[in-house]
Design a protein around this nucleic acid. Sequence first.
RNA 1: UGCCCGAUGGUGUAACGGUAGCACAGCAGACUCUGGAUCUGUUUGUCAUGGUUCAAAUCCAUGUCGGGCAGCCA
Length: 599
Amino acid sequence: MSDPVSIPAPSAPSDFIRDIVRDDLASGRHQRVVTRFPPEPNGYLHIGHAKSICLNFGIALENQGVCHLRMDDTNPTKEDVEYVDSIIADVRWLIEGWADGILGLKPKGMGPEAAPDEVDFRLSATATHLGQPMEPFYASDYFDALYGFARQLIRLGRAYVCDLTPEETEQYRGSPDRPGRNSPYRNRTVEENLALFEKMKEGRFPDSACTLRARIDMESPNIWMRDPVIYRIRHADHHHTGNRWCIYPMYDFAHCLSDYIEGITHSICTLEFEVHRPLYDWILESLQLPRSLPHQFEFARLNLGYTVMSKRKLLQLVQGGLVSGWDDPRLPTISGLRRRGVPASALRAFAHEIGVTKYNGLTDLSVFEFAVRRELNRVAVRRMGVLRPLRLVLTNIAEGEVHWFDAVNNPEDPSAGTRKIPFSRHIFIEQEDFQENPPPKYFRLRPGGDVRLKYACIIRCDEVIKNDVGEVVEIRCTADLESHSGGANAARKVKGTIHWVSAGHSIAATVRLYDRLFTVAEPDKEEGDFRQYLNPESLQELEAQLEPSLAEAVGETRFQLERIGYFVRDSRETDSNRPVFNRTITLKDGWAKESARPG
RNA sequence: UGCCCGAUGGUGUAACGGUAGCACAGCAGACUCUGGAUCUGUUUGUCAUGGUUCAAAUCCAUGUCGGGCAGCCA
């Protein structure tokens, strides 16, 4: 069976950022587009990052450019290689078969080059190193270059070493409606600053003893222009540079210059960085750099209903044991969604569907669910399985008698072919497909009523057998074998068709049903701790009976259990004799809507 | 009561001074050996008030509402 490729002929995406890129290319401002996806390796990627990945890689792809994967790793105390590895895996999975060709990596170990007498460092993704081991870009690979840029800023009189404590720095900064005050260390000489900065680098000072600050304007209405800290002292090992450094650049200093070093043309980030843009531009312009400068553009991050998106909150769920890990199928992490069975193509289709704007809204979960169902409907093979089995005996079929019927593998894709499924005297049907006293418009099995067993034949309910406490434990029916496909009564019409499995042939399996993680659409906007709104029924585990073909290793193949939903084999629990399947998503349920109707 | 950004049906978006369109959701129906899929029809919208203009969702002003910014986090 074929792998998901892409959504059918999607219209070319269009948004305000793509408009800008198009205009920049048309005007000759840039010859080639270079974007970047710059996660900090301090957590796992989630569906919000997927939106950003689709934007950055999409723009590069549409314009024959390249998109660098860069670890934005300037804070050694929060970052870890575990996260680096997961990020690489998640990005590769998301873009596979779509944008792999423009994924910008660099030869392992390569750093930026600088001309001897020039303050200019550069490093670009290149296809000429094919065959060499490749790795993502790392902001931490630029620490030498960044140190050089910082010295240049000092020489230009635009940065100084400040001895204020963290508390004093905060006080001097003022507040949004009150201007800040100049640091007493603001007017140190260039020589003094150079010497002090050197000492910072050499480790002569403890953490937080001093900082390097940009010399801008303590009275600026924009707080980020009030002499922001651009280097701090941290005697900590870094996941990528080890113990080589004890001073680390801040985001604002590192990011714009990393973009410059890599030749990024369009640096796309989320709205909260909007107020940082003047600083981004100030640093680059102050340095009097020879090459053309990157520009920052901001878009609204994704908010999805009934989940949380912040790395901090996801971390709390993981560390608190409230979920099974970063790849818990209920989480909106890319690894969680992958384990849940969501195809990468569905994530891409979703990103395309929601668009890119500067409006901070809340995307309805149904938009995401629709994208998932649309992809799965196209590619998933159909199988039968009973989640909550109810015994049913066909009294006119002999013990040991077995009929093999043809079943269509995918009505949306004739090339998927058919398979044979066994049918016998003892079968299981879904408990909810029988009702002794059914409500109006109930089309399934009832006493004296008939129903079609999908791919098999029509049966009539003759007898209901109950246990001591009045529960239905078995249904006894007669089968009209002539009503199977090709039979004399094949054209017989009945209202309902239900799924089933042959009890002597079916396999037992554990099935995990997932529901939304939270009971409210915006957990982080409710009163109190967001964790109190966790949905206690977000995971339900059932012992199901599945048709025999599902005993074979199905790997990552997604399949639909007819009338129930889409499933995938759990990628972690593969050792046990009993397979574990995850329900990716339910089928749209028209009956649930009908039966919920008042009256 | 500082600065920045935003506002189009229930939700997400398009319209780039000239017919307010699309998707999801909803509703109604057709079809169906998945109450799935598919198909048809359909309800609902330019935050407010002024101004510019032959013409404003679009430009301007004011207001309202929402978001962001005071880490030696990113």
